[in-house]
Design a protein around this nucleic acid. Structure first.
Lengths: 244, 244
DNA sequence: CTCGGCAGGTGAACATGTTCACCAATATAG
DNA sequence: CTATATTGGTGAACATGTTCACCTGCCGAG
C-alpha cells in the first residue's frame, strides 16, 4: 500500500515521511540531524550550506533529501523535538494561581528554546508562509497543540481558574502572548537578550498581568472573542487544542 | 484621492546608494520598480522571479542589480514609499484623546499598507534578520522614525496627553503594539483578513485600551521601562526617534 | 542459491538570486 | 574634435537549495 515513498515523484501522501527505515538509515539520519544542528549553532542557519552539512557528515548533498524534505524541515524538526521536551518540563508545573503558572510556562519555554535561538530564528519566515509547514497552520503538527495545551492547562488547572470557557480562552490568549514574547526574544539584539530578561522581570512585577486580572469582569467579552479571533485568523481552525 | 497606488515618488535622489542618475536611467528604474510590484501583487513575492521581472520589463536580469541591491530591497523600497505616504495621511489626524488618535493611526496604517499585503509579507524575514536591512535596526532608515513619530505625536499632542517622558514612552509602546498588529495582519489567514477587522473592532470597543488608561498611575513605571526595553532590545539605540 | 525489490547512496543537472567581465553610448574636459 | 570617464546595459558564470536518473548492496521469497 504505502510502500513507495522513496522515489515517489512529488510528495508521498499522508503522514508517512521519508524516515530511516533500517538501522543504518537511522544512524545516518541521526548523524545528519546532529551535524546540521551543530553547524546551525556554530555558524548560523543561513551561513550553513547543505553542501557543508553533507561534507561534514561525509555524505552526498542529495542524500539529505532522502531524510528531510527541505533545509527548513530540519529546523522544523528541531522545533518539534523541543516542543516535546517542553511538554515534559511543563509537567513540573506547580499548583497555584494562573499568573504564577503562566510565568512558569513562559520561563520554561525560554529556557528550553534558549540554546537554539540562532537556528530557530530561521523559523520565522516559515511561520509566516502560507505553506503547510507553518507552525500555526499545521493542525496535524503535534507541536502547536502540545505547547498550546500547556498554556491552556496553566489556566484551567489553576487554583484561581475562571469558569468554563473563559479559562480556555484565556489559555489560548496567553499562548499567543507567549508566541509574541518568543518572537520578541528572537528579534532581541541586546547583548545576551537582556531586553527580554527585563521584559520577563517586568511581567513578574506583575502590573500588566494584574491589570488583566483586575479587569476580568469587564474583559470577559474581550477575552473570549479575542481567543475566537486567534483560532479563526491565526490557526485557521474552529476548536481550541485542549490539554491532552 | 483615488485608491490607485501604482508607484509612488521617484526615490532617486538618495545619497549615492542606488543608480538612476540620468533621465533614461530614472525611467528604467521606475519601469523595473512598477513591473516588479505589479508581479508581486499578481503572483506573489516568491513566485515572482527576477528573470520574470526582467523579461516583462524587456531588460536583462542583471540590470536589476544596477538599481536595486537585492530582490528584497525592492519590497523594502515599497515599504519606504508607503511609510512616506502614511506620514502624509497621518497629518489628517484630528485633535482628541490619545486613544482615538491611536486608533486613527492604526487604521490609517492598515489602509495604506492594505493593497500590498502579499508583497509586504516578504518583509517579515527581513525584519528578523540581523542585517542592516532590518526595519528595526536601521537608524538610518527614515521609515521607522517617520512611522514611530506618528505614534509618538498621537500621544504627545493628544488632548489628554500624559506629562513629559511618559507620553513619549507611551507613543513608543503604541508603535510597537501597532507593529504587532501589522504582523498579526500579515499572518491572518481568515478570508479578507476578517480576524484583523474583528481585532480592531474589539480595540474600538475599548476595553483593553481603557484598562491601560485606568491603570496609568500604576503602570507608569512599567510603561517607561518597557519603552526603554524597546529601544534597547528592538531598535538598538538609546534615544527615541522623533518626527523630523 | 538466485533473483527481484527496495532502502541507502551518488553525481549531474536544474532554478533562481547574485556577481562579474565586458560592451555601448553619452557627456564632459582639454 | 578627440580622449576619457561615467553610466546604461548585457550575457555568462557562480552559489545554493532542490530534483532526477541511476547505481549498489542486502534480504527474504522461491
Amino acid at each position: 500500500m504505502t510502500a513507495r515513498d522513496d522515489d515517489a515523484p512529488p510528495t508521498s501522501g499522508g503522514p508517512g515521511r521519508p524516515r530511516g527505515r533500517t538501522a543504518a538509515g537511522d544512524a545516518t539520519r541521526k548523524k545528519l540531524y546532529a551535524t546540521a544542528l551543530k553547524s546551525f549553532r556554530a555558524r548560523g542557519y543561513d551561513e550553513t550550506t547543505l553542501r557543508d552539512i553533507a561534507e561534514a557528515a561525509d555524505v552526498s548533498p542529495s542524500l539529505l533529501y532522502k531524510y528531510f524534505p527541505s533545509k527548513r524541515a530540519i529546523v522544523l524538526e528541531l522545533y518539534e523535538d523541543l516542543s516535546g521536551r517542553y511538554a515534559d518540563e511543563a509537567t513540573h508545573m506547580k499548583a497555584g494561581s494562573w499568573r504564577d503558572r503562566f510565568m512558569f510556562a513562559l520561563e520554561t519555554s525560554l529556557r528550553v528554546l534558549g540554546p537554539h535561538r540562532e537556528a530557530l530564528s530561521a523559523l520565522v519566515p516559515v511561520l509566516v508562509g502560507r505553506g503547510e509547514e507553518s507552525v500555526f497552520a499545521s493542525t496535524t503538527s503535534p507541536a502547536r497543540a502540545r505547547v498550546q495545551g500547556v498554556f491552556v492547562a496553566a489556566v484551567t488547572e489553576a487554583s484561581d481558574a475562571p469558569s468554563g470557557e473563559m479559562a480556555e480562552a484565556m489559555g489560548t490568549l496567553l499562548y499567543v502572548m507567549h508566541l509574541g514574547i518568543i518572537l520578541w526574544w528572537l528579534l532581541d539584539r541586546s547583548p545576551g537578550q537582556r531586553a527580554t530578561g527585563e521584559l520577563v522581570k517586568a511581567l513578574h512585577r506583575g502590573k500588566p498581568l494584574a491589570a488583566l486580572g483586575v479587569h476580568l469582569p469587564y474583559a470577559r467579552g474581550f477575552v473570549t472573542s479575542a481567543a475566537a479571533i486567534c483560532r479563526d485568523g491565526l490557526f485557521g481552525e474552529p476548536a481550541p487544542g485542549a490539554a491532552p
